[in-house]
Structures are given as C-alpha cells and as structure tokens.
Design a protein around this nucleic acid. Structure first.
Lengths: 179, 179
DNA sequence: ATATCCATGTAACGTGTTACATGATTGT
DNA sequence: ACAATCATGTAACACGTTACATGGATAT
C-alpha cells in the first residue's frame, strides 16, 4: 500500500500534473516502487476524493491538465504512514524461479540468461553511480534531507552491486564445473 | 506470471497436496516468490483446468486431500517458460519510499526503523548461511541441479548481505553527521 | 481545418490479500 | 459423540496491467 504515499511524497517535492508525475516517477521513486500512468491517475483520483490532495483551478474537461497540490491532511497522512513499523517484504525474482525450474528439469541452460542479466545490472549500476557522482559530490556537507536521498540511491547501488557479484560468481562456478 | 510455474517446479520436485505445497513454498521458492494458500489453491485449479497437472484419485469432496502430479504438458510448459528471456523487474521496497517521504517531510526520524531492519536482515542471513553450511558442504562435487539450487540460495545470501551493509553504512553516516 | 500528438480517463481482466465457511480428520 | 484442528474452498475487495477511447493542444 505504498503507492499513494509515494505519490504524496513526489507531489510534496514538487506539485505537478499526473503525466509529469508518471515521468518523474520513472526516474526516482519508481526505481523502488514502479507504477504505470493508469495506476497513478487512479490513485490521484482516490487521494483527491479523500481530501489529501487538490487540483489547482476548476477546469475538469477531459483532456485538460490537472495540477495537483498536497493538502495539510495529505502531509499529516504521509507523516503518520512513514512513522509506522513495516517489515521488509520478500522480493520477487522470476529468475530464481526459473533457476529452480532449470534444476528440476535438467534440460535448460541458464548461463546465457544470467550473462544477459549481468549486462543489464551493470548498465543500471553505472547509471546510479553517475547520479551519485553528479548529485552527491564527496566532501560536501549535505543536509539531512540530502543524506536520506543519498541513502536511497546507495540502496540501489548496493543491491545492483550484489546482483552483479552474484551473476559473476554464478557464471564462474558453472565454468569451473565444466573444466 | 511466475506463480503457476513456481508451483509446477515445486510439484515436479515432489508431488503433493495444496496445503503441503503452501508449507514447502514458505521454505524454498517462497523466499523469491511468495504466495498465500488461497493463491495456491486458485492457481492449482487453473493448472488443472489447463491440463498441466492432475489430481490423483477421484474423490472431490470438499475437505479431502487432493494430491497433484505434473503432467507431460505441464513439464513442457515449464520448459518453454523457463527458456524465455525475462528482464529483472524493479524491486519494491517500501522502506525507500518512506526514506524519501522522511526527506521531504523533515520531521520523521528513520534511524530506529533502519536499525530494526538491520536486525531482521541479519536474522534471515544467518538462516540462509545455516542452510548453505548444512545442505552444500564445501569440497563436495555437486550435480548441476545442486549447483543451480545453491545459486538460488547464494542470491538470497548476497542480497541480504547487501541490505545489511546498507543498513550499517546508512546508520554510520547518520552518526557521523551528528558528531 | 485537419492531422497529429499528448494528457486524461474508461474498461476489462489478472493477480494478491483478507476474512470466513465447509467438509474431513484426529484426539478424547 | 464431541471438540479441536486441518485441508480445501468461496467471496469480496485492493492492487496491477493492458488495451483503448476521448478531449485539448500544436503544427502545418
């Protein structure tokens, strides 16, 4: 149930329209909580009904832009939610299901797919590292808010590094076993 | 769309009833693809309809056990699916959403929650390491199937280590900044 | 003006969650 | 026989995905 709160967060950072929200989402929070534009519009509608956000102006014609602001009640709700305890949820990695399937089938070679994932993870990792270098240069005292934003980015980096290391050790293990 | 294939995999490893599947799921594939027993019964029903699995015997009374086997067609479908290319999906980590919320709110302290997650990840990591030590003792030549099963376990270990390292560096960073 | 694109929205469906109901099984 | 428990299942709803439709904005 994080999507409405992710939207509130993004709107607090900068009020905007649904479409812009969808675009920005893909580049920030979306790395940790993906959503399609349809989900976003639906949730924006619910948040508006609940009085947590409001659209600027009055026009409600179908194709016209609706610019949303977070209301005081929305901020309160976000504070309440972010203060709750919430355990980490088990990840969902289809590749692991496929590896176990390959193990029991005995007829499927997964090395190519692992190598392909290795490249993909490497690419994402490079992107994250670029962001880290440009947005958080070393040696500069950062605000608490910036520290938190860096922490989120660091989580992305650390996890991509983990996946990359796993791809490498797994491919190396297979190679060894074939010698 | 991995759940039916995760069930096929688990049933190929050992045919069983829905309830046993649910229990075994929590201890193996479930670490990478969680499902409740209701989801499992629903998917078993669909797999049966599609002719991929079959229940032993005929009894269909409501509370009686139904023991499932994978049919040839199910095996074929699992082979087909596990051979497809499938990109890694973005993870969903509510904690990251909450950190960004805390960053923009400026009124919520997340250090306790991060420390709590650190303990949780540590506990899971210990469990995985125990399994590794008992099920995959070093120096023993393993079959390809065992290598794949170990690879899945290793992914769990590597990722939990990454989360743990992230918790540590994040808490350390906050502490430094307060000095 | 009209073709094209974009922002918004609807519809239908699949997947995941929660609460609860019913028939079998087990223990006393 | 009766209570407690277990395996299976139903129902209702929330969340996520895909395909498509409509109205406004833009460019020629």
């Amino acid at each position: 149930m994080s999507l409405p709160h992710a939207l509130l967060t993004s709107l607090l950072e900068k009020p905007c329209t649904g479409a812009e929200l969808a675009r920005r989402f893909d580049k920030s929070i979306g790395h940790f909580w993906h959503a399609t534009h349809q989900q976003i519009y639906r949730e924006l509608g619910k948040l508006e009904e609940r009085g947590l956000i409001a659209a600027r102006g009055l026009a409600t014609a179908r194709g016209s832009q609706r610019h949303f602001d977070v209301l005081e009640q929305g901020r309160t709700e976000l504070e309440r939610w972010s203060s709750l305890e919430a355990d980490p949820q088990p990840m969902r990695a289809a590749l692991m299901v496929r590896l176990r399937a390959a193990a029991v089938l005995g007829t499927v070679d997964m090395t190519h797919e692992i190598a392909r994932h290795q490249v993909l993870h490497h690419t994402v990792l490079e992107q994250y590292r670029d962001i880290e270098a440009s947005d958080f240069p070393p040696g500069i005292a950062a605000s608490t808010a910036d520290e938190l934003r860096l922490a989120v980015l660091r989580a992305g980096i650390v996890l991509e590094e983990a996946w990359l290391a796993w791809c490498q050790e797994t491919l190396a293990g297979h190679k060894d076993s074939k010698v």
